[in-house]
Design a protein around this nucleic acid. Structure first.
Lengths: 121, 121
DNA sequence: TCCTCGTTTGAGTATTTGTTCAAATGTTAA
DNA sequence: TTAACATTTGAACAAATACTCAAACGAGGA
């Protein structure tokens, strides 16, 4: 005779606390928002990009200024800026041959400020 | 006689706008803070971890609940939770053999809320 | 003591990522 | 038109990542 319930309620593939899972599912974000949220945070989750965004917080700059500031190739900066531009975190303005980049709005700054406040406490 | 100034003010390795670079340098974060900031955002920059953190926002959960919710192996969840635990974004509580994970505090929730508000507008 | 189950750990792996180099683009001035 | 310069693009590559599988660990209960 099998002792108690041998294979029911086991963790593998089954749910230990259905009500908790239900609660979490109810609060869960739609997949598209999860993706965009992760994309946004990932974009801010690189030291070079943090420095770029921080620098742009103090005013617009061109690619080679940023390269000099961060200490990498202009090509590297350009690649990073393309990513940030695709996500609309930065925008640019052309003046002759030089492109001046700026933060699109203050959302990024506010996120960084909140995060800084967090890790400083 | 060379036309104008042939090689001064060129971008490669030199600074196009020293005053902008100086301004940015003055506002720059110390390297340690840049690193921690990037680490924090990177930790939040993955769809699975976004979902985990969001789920924990509605109450504590054990590993296999999270695995069932997210749809990956418990091993995968455990690996992610270790990352989040190392960065003190989550903490756990043991009850018999099961570990209940929770958000360490509401900072993560506030960051996610702000980011959501951002990308929803 | 065994055995079970939840969790963790480590190896292995396919994918992504951040950078540099070299070459192409595009704008301006001679 | 030609030359110069800021920027972009694409290839290449090393390093980091996120997952699965298999095995180990640890806490209870028979």
């Amino acid at each position: 005779m099998p002792t108690a319930a041998p294979f029911t309620d086991q963790c593998q593939g089954r749910t230990l606390h259905p009500e908790r899972i239900g609660r979490a599912e109810a609060a869960a974000l739609p997949p598209a928002e999860v993706a965009r949220l992760a994309q946004l945070f990932k974009a801010m989750g690189d030291p070079s990009r943090v420095r770029i965004l921080r620098a742009l917080g103090s005013g617009e700059m061109c690619v080679c200024d940023l390269a000099a500031l961060i200490g990498v190739t202009e090509s590297a900066i350009s690649h990073q800026l393309r990513l940030l531009r695709t996500l609309r975190l930065v925008a640019n303005r052309r003046e002759g041959p030089v492109l001046y980049y700026r933060l699109t709005d203050d959302h990024v700054g506010r996120l960084m400020a909140l995060a800084l406040e967090y890790l400083r406490e």
